[in-house]
Amino acid sequence: MIEQNNSFSYFHNSSIPLFILVTLLLGITACNQQNQVQENISEQPIPTQTPESDLTLNDVTLEEASEEGQMLWRVKSQRASYLQNQELIRVTKPEGELFQDGKVTYKITALQGEVYQDGNKIILIDEIEVYDIQNKVVIRGQQLEWLTEPGIIIVTNNITGSNEQIQASAQKAKVISKEKKIEFYGQVVAMVKEPVLKIQTEQLFWEIEQKKLLTNQPIKIEQLKDKNVIGSAYGDESEYDLGNKIATLKKNVQLLQTDPKVQISSDLVTWNMPQNLITSPGPITVLEQEEKVVLKANQGQGNFQNNTFNLSGNVIGVGQKNQAQLNSDRLTWYFENQTFEAQGNVFYRQVDPPFNVRGPRAVGQLENEKVTIEGGSSNVVTEIIPQ
């Protein structure tokens, strides 16, 4: 027998499986309809019914377990209304729990929602909050679809997601509980707290346990200091490691540094932010914007702590103002005084006045055509000084 109280509350402070609850609700509804035609109606209060619902209960707990008996999910609600024709239960101020291996992994709250009779889908609306207990991640939005069997939570409308390292906003977020992963879609903006970064893209995957942010969509990363941009990067694909604070960008990569003013282009670049290193294992182009010098090589690394850039493999340096050109096997560029040191098969040429020379090593400045070539078969030093 099911006991009622004056507030028409069933299963008060108790929990039962969803399919049992639905069966009981159907039974109660049928009994209520039969009792209404009887002349002698019991003085005991009957369950609340509205034109929209077949039965309304207070303080209800719905839950679902696996065939092995492990809890899958649980929803507590202040009020639950069963709609038989739609095969769902409408809940007010639901508080949900998602389980994995018998432990609560996510807690979910909202103002209202709908639990479908098969127990495989739950819809929540207004003031959504999803809390990842282990990783202390909070996701907020205005609408949620909870696919209980695969453990997937989809949140839409004014999405934010945050923990102690990152705060993100997007049009949609997809939480894949088994993979400890959150996928953000649509106008994604992620702010990383240390170092301060602003990441913009259309799709961003947050692998929480691996502490990585990944995307295969065009991305913009800005490094900020005192709210000013001091470096920015663009690419068609990216991976950012929140642990070691290294960004790896692929395809059509461009990096811009403000001090010194440098533009770097490549198809694969690693940006080590703690060490302020930018490395490319493949073809790379460096534009030194102050003096309009272009450097190209098969690979290179910029160290912006000491303001140098090392290039190797078919190095070409061109001063764009006077078209002076230097070729070598290796070259180190010093941004502070706009000088270089080149080694291996050095070849230098200039247009005005026409001149070219070869040697094993060279130092100097491309832009003002002041170059010293050292060595050679006669160990001669050639110094080129513009008129």
Score class of each variant (00 low, 15 high):
E114M: 06
G102L: 00
Q78W: 01
T148A: 06
K103T: 04
V91F: 14
E145D: 13
V75G: 04
I133P: 02
I133G: 05
T156D: 09
T109R: 11
Q165V: 08
R74I: 01
M71E: 04
T105Q: 04
S66R: 03
S162A: 13
E95M: 07
G161Y: 06
E194H: 05
I139C: 08
P150A: 05
E183H: 08
L88W: 12
L98V: 04
D101M: 02
N157G: 06
A190F: 07
I122F: 08
I139R: 03
E164V: 12
A110S: 15
E183D: 11
Q112W: 09
D101Q: 07
G96Q: 11
W146A: 12
T105M: 02
Q112P: 04
K193F: 13
Q117L: 01
K180Y: 02
I139L: 15
G69V: 03
E145Q: 15
L83W: 08
K193Q: 13
G69L: 00
E67T: 09
S162C: 06
F184A: 13
V192G: 04
T109A: 08
V75K: 01
F99L: 01
V137S: 08
M191Q: 14
R90L: 11
I166D: 05
D118Q: 07
V189A: 09
I89F: 10
I153T: 04
P150R: 08
K136T: 11
E68R: 10
I125G: 03
Q117M: 02
K178V: 02
V189R: 15
V115I: 15
V192A: 10
R74E: 05
N157D: 14
Q117P: 04
E127M: 11
E149C: 02
V188K: 02
I108W: 03
Q142S: 13
E194M: 01
Q165R: 14
N157P: 06
E87H: 11
Y82G: 03
Q78I: 02
V192E: 15
G102P: 12
I152D: 00
Y82K: 00
E67Y: 10
K107Y: 03
A170H: 04
Q142G: 13
Y185W: 05
A168W: 03
Q117T: 09
V75E: 08
